[in-house]
Nucleic acid binder design. Structure first.
Lengths: 332, 332
DNA sequence: CTGAAAGCGCTTACAG
DNA sequence: CTGAAAGCGCTTACAG
């Protein structure tokens, strides 16, 4: 009933023991007499005592929190990633502490610095920072794991294997009999966008060297892709497949084609990347990226590092899976 | 270069000042000589010093973190809510500390207790807990704001105004000339589901007392709604509109109608609730719930409470907006 | 098995 | 304007 919550001293007093004994019981040490344990537990219950986390952190230099630094994310990607992170974190008794980050490198550094003393480790996703800015922003001496970051080899890093994903999709399109595939690239300076674009060129050169491999500059936006497809049609450019760098652009392309009365997939196949929930509804073929799994694995690795049982930092690629659906169905 | 990070003592030593002066500068107090300030700032820079948050929390009894306790959420709802929370929190210098919560009332209480000393306030969303379990789980003495929780009047609470939303949609359907509206309710024991169901009955009784107001028991699942519509068709039940308690069920209904060759909206109008991103794509008419705004407003209110400048706890209803789209378009 | 005491890194009256 | 010192609530050698 006290205005301010009970402390360990109150518990000690109530149990007629020292704070040391209370602390031992609370931390599950085995060098306590059963009777002592009982009295402590009883007092804890009676007072509704919960240890003060800040005091504990100060003593132990551990916070049981882990910092999650993310760009300003929308939608499914964010929720799935957090889902994986949260699942892994809570399984090990950690809380995720969130910090959104804006594009500016200096601000990013401040955001991460502000987490010092608040977290035992950092999970950073910063696709918008170049290697130098990222290196400058990362705090030293704090276990850190990177997701979707550019060239940084002092920390363990996770990325989607865009190359493998693009290869799977191109193979699928070729297997469906497509011969004239147009790639709509994502926004410039984005790592995923450029990896997917480059992989498209290379895989096409390898698997179908005699066929065109046209690339249009998109920006991951649905409307832009729709416009690009309209231009393609207006210019009478021949093509029998659109492979967009993400699902939203694939959907934009799909709508533009349907509005133009083009049969999909009869005349043109459409494919995307990401497997957003919409894709399933609209029968869009795409590459499934296991974002939840990515978040969980990155978190597991971070916790291993925080608890000093991690291997040397490495670079992990997660391969997406092909989801072949209606928009690329072979017509024969 | 020290293995362990610099402390305020290191800064004081480097600047040849007391820790008190360093602390004053760091906290922006004005009773410091400009030269002193300069020397401190210089030393901070040289040592790359960042104050230890746990120590600061222990001294000030403030953490600058706020606990966010959520059920196991998926998708857009979660990301939009977190977006709003994060925006408001970071605008005031707070970090969101996340904790997912499972259905069990006792576990929920433990999750919240574990946040004691870690956060200055709590934002709780627990639609699955009844009033008694919720009251038992909430820690005392911590500023708390509720979102989508059942009857609890000691704390400020936010909810979507389901009643107003249902009324808007029913008015719209009637205005479109629909006369035989079927409501597919959400899962039993869910607060939103029952509010929407009850509102449907009442609004229909008020605005169209002579017309049928059939209600089918759904469960918020797409497949279930599809099945219910098939049954309706098989039984030859007459209806010219389906108003589902959420968008996913509306989509299930939509698919079932189309598969049965029924003209939408020519013969049957379809409407949902939530405005998920899919709704826009599929031209589904629905009620738009501003989740991002909900998160932000709840957070603002929590911070006001934490900083002792809040009004008395109240109950706030956020009215959703009508998104009239293709599936209910008047055919005349 | 238990307790007295030091220490974690800050902030903040208090005295000057 | 500045510094010495107490105190925030814990944990953990250390001595017994």
């Amino acid at each position: 009933m006290a205005k301010t919550s009970a402390t360990i001293r109150d518990v000690a007093r109530a149990a007629e023991l020292s704070v040391a004994s209370v602390s031992r019981v609370l931390n599950g040490k085995d060098n306590v007499h059963p009777d002592t344990r009982e009295r402590v537990l009883e007092a804890v219950r009676a007072l509704g005592y919960t240890p003060n986390a800040a005091a504990r952190s100060l003593s132990t230099a551990r916070t049981h929190a882990l910092g999650v630094v993310l760009p300003d994310l929308h939608g499914e990607f964010f929720s799935e990633l957090m889902r994986g992170i949260d699942r892994a974190a809570s399984a090990h008794g950690y809380f995720p502490l969130l910090s959104s980050m804006h594009a500016d490198g200096v601000l990013a550094g401040q955001a991460m610095a502000a987490m010092r003393g608040r977290v035992d480790g950092l999970l950073v996703m910063a696709p918008q920072l170049d290697a130098a800015d990222l290196a400058a922003a990362l705090p030293t001496g704090l276990p850190t794991v990177l997701v979707n970051c550019q060239g940084e080899d002092r920390h363990h890093a996770f990325r989607v294997d865009n190359r493998a994903g693009v290869r799977l999709m191109v193979e699928h399109l070729l297997a469906c009999g497509r011969r004239n595939i147009v790639h709509i690239a994502g926004i410039e300076d984005n790592l995923d966008a450029s990896e997917r674009r480059d992989a498209f060129s290379e895989v096409m050169a390898e698997l179908a060297p005699d066929q065109p491999a046209r690339i249009l500059q998109g920006d991951f936006q649905e409307a832009t892709a729709g416009r690009l497809v309209q231009e393609l049609l207006a210019d009478d450019v021949p093509f029998d497949a659109i492979f967009a760098a993400n699902d939203m652009m694939a959907l934009g392309a799909l709508q533009a084609l349907r509005e133009a009365g083009i049969d999909v997939p009869g005349r043109v196949a459409v494919a995307g990347f990401d497997d957003v929930p919409l894709a399933r509804f609209l029968s869009l073929s795409t590459m499934r990226v296991d974002i939840d799994g990515l978040g969980a694995r990155a978190t597991e690795r971070l916790i291993e590092e925080m608890e000093g049982r991690a291997d040397a930092p490495a670079f992990e690629r997660l391969t997406p899976g092909l989801m072949a659906r209606g928009t690329t169905q072979a017509s024969n």
